[in-house]
């Protein structure tokens, strides 16, 4: 089990082409937990590929002409917290701030969050609401998969053995966006329920994503499209009844479980409240900024 340190994307492609028992190591914040607890075991024929050595994976490209933020898979949470990324994708930035602790945000990467495919993934929830896509690369070429389609269940994804996440393409959406998550303590906690809302008065779109209320992050399509038509984009307002209906649709799209962190009933309730508050806050903010 040697460790490979590719220094370019080309190298990485070749390594993945040649070897099949490969472990891709990004920030390690999830992978190492499994190793430390013995639930993940490395065998001597495993090849660990250290993604940190690929500098190209940590690039950030802000392209305002095509309205796209291109985030290398190796970009870390702490790099998302402020500055131009915060301006371009505020709800992603907000989600980053809710992740773990400073130490975790130093190590963990956005690509790792997507690849891990946790139903509680904070960054993924924001990315789904932003309609971001995953750029998967291999020696065979490149393909784009919507983040919402990338995970197929808890910890399972559509990635092929010879592929890696090169970057995440995040559309830059004018308007307002927000991310909220509930945990049982005030910091450093896994989401019990989370929600991201993106409101774009320009394109008159409302997009809603939900976390920790299903096997994957959920794109709440029916709620999103109802909200899109129900919101009066000229006045940045929505009627109470319509907002209640959005909340109802959000709750219907959730399929949470009971576990030691919370109950299905509470999670269903909570995502509705989070979405309602985010929409209210967003519309108010849009109105004020006009």
């Amino acid at each position: 089990m040697p460790i490979a340190h590719p220094d370019s994307i080309e190298d990485l492609k070749e390594i993945l082409r040649a070897d099949t028992s490969i472990v891709l190591l990004a920030g390690g914040t999830d992978f190492m937990v499994g190793l430390n607890h013995g639930s993940t075991r490395l065998e001597s024929d495993h090849l660990i590929v250290d993604l940190r050595s690929v500098a190209e994976l940590s690039t950030v490209e802000l392209d305002y002409r095509s309205k796209m933020l291109r985030l290398g898979a190796g970009v870390r949470w702490n790099d998302l917290l402020s500055g131009p990324i915060e301006d371009a994708a505020p709800c992603l930035s907000q989600s980053a701030r809710t992740v773990g602790s400073h130490q975790i945000r130093t190590a963990g990467t956005i690509g790792g969050n997507v690849a891990t495919a946790s139903p509680a993934g904070d960054g993924v929830c924001a990315l789904v609401a932003l309609d971001a896509s995953v750029v998967l690369t291999s020696h065979r070429g490149q393909r784009n998969v919507a983040v919402r389609d990338f995970a197929t269940g808890p910890k399972t994804t559509v990635i092929e053995k010879d592929e890696f996440i090169e970057r995440i393409d995040v559309p830059i959406v004018n308007g307002w966006q927000g991310y909220s998550k509930i945990g049982t303590r005030n910091a450093m906690v896994i989401s019990v329920a989370g929600a991201a809302v993106v409101l774009s008065p320009d394109s008159q779109i409302c997009r809603i994503a939900l976390g920790s209320v299903g096997p994957t992050i959920i794109a709440a399509d029916s709620a999103s499209s109802f909200a899109t038509t129900a919101i009066d984009w000229n006045t940045s307002s929505v009627s109470t009844d319509d907002l209640d209906q959005v909340v109802q649709l959000v709750r219907e799209s959730a399929s949470p479980i009971n576990d030691h962190r919370s109950t299905a009933s509470y999670r269903t309730h909570a995502v509705g409240v989070l979405v309602k508050r985010l929409i209210e806050q967003g519309l108010r903010s849009i109105k004020e900024s006009v």
Binding site: G28, T29, M32, V33, L35, I48, D50, T106, A107
Partner: peptide
Amino acid sequence: GSCSVLLDGNLVCSCLVLAAS
């Protein structure tokens, strides 16, 4: 956080770093 160290100047949990990497 009890295992916090600086890795290239950044604060990380050393329990989450693969030593050989």
